[in-house]
Amino acid sequence: MTATPIPATYRRPLRQRLAVTLEPWLYCAPVLILITAVMLVPLVLGISYAFRDIQLLNPFSGGFVGLEHFKALGQDDAFLRALRNTLWWTGASVFFQLAFGLILALLLNVPFTGRGLAQALVFLPWAVPTFLAGLNWAWLFNPVIGPIPHWLTALGLMDEPSNILADPSIAMWGPILAATWWGIPFFAITLLAALQSIPKDLYEAASIDGASPIQRFFSITLPYLAPVIAITVLLRTVWVANFADLIIVMTNGGPADRTQTVASYIFTQAFKRLDFGYASAVALVLLALLLAYSMVILVFRQKLSNRDK
């Protein structure tokens, strides 16, 4: 072994070390390049648009306007209404998805014959493309071909069959119901997975000690689920707040802007009015709000877990 030529042992570690350092980056390079080009560069560009006058159909636009867009935003009643609508839309959608998703997960956590089939059927909405889910629910609310207005009339909740989506005071319930239908499986899948990871002997010990099912739920199930619920709600809230598909398909923000959320407002400004500058300013506000929300939740969660210790 001592006969090994010295230059070779000197040279190879250096080249090898370089190769070892570079190797993982070669595997990552395609994804990194793509994400930089299609997500990070446009993100930075979009932030710069917020301070510029960019209108697709106006060749003279493109100049810097400073904070003009943001000043206009403060006076824009449609935007302020969209902010309030976003709160209502996001809060209600996430609440119903969580509540029914939790109930469904608890129901599916009990063994019974046909559980596999039942699980496949209740999770099916999750696979339905969102544009189709939106159209499908819009049709169900349509008194011409949908049953819902007729049922509501029969129940005495409606004077005559009319379209919920056309009534400014209740239109938002349409997209919320569609979002709930579509989002329940996501919560149910996540929570069911968490339920199945709770050690079974905990429940056995508790029932030997004489704990009732309700006691077992509040002292075992809920504490185990709490961290999963917290993180799922955080992610889902951000996602639902950004989610414009259902609203664009079902109501397009109408009637009278009553279902316009910030996300659908951005799309309308960019797609219909081709005002990219203003759309980007609205988007920047949404980004800031969502960041602030995430920070508050994370700090709150940190505080809670510190108190436990």
């Binding site: 994804v31 994400i35 299609v38 997500m39 990070l40 560069v41 446009p42 993100l43 560009l45 979009g46 648009y49 960019i54 697709l56 951000v238 707040a241 950004n242 414009a244 996300a263 951005i266 799309f267 960019a270 797609f271 990219f276 759309a279 980007s280 988007a283 920047l284 949404l286 980004l287 969502l290 995430s294």
Partner: peptide
């Protein structure tokens, strides 16, 4: 990678079109 999943994709509509 995680951050790219968090920010509003609707933000990118205008700049991606421009690019």
């Amino acid at each position: 990678l995680l951050i790219t999943q968090m920010f509003p994709l609707v933000m990118l509509v205008a700049p991606i079109f421009k690019i």
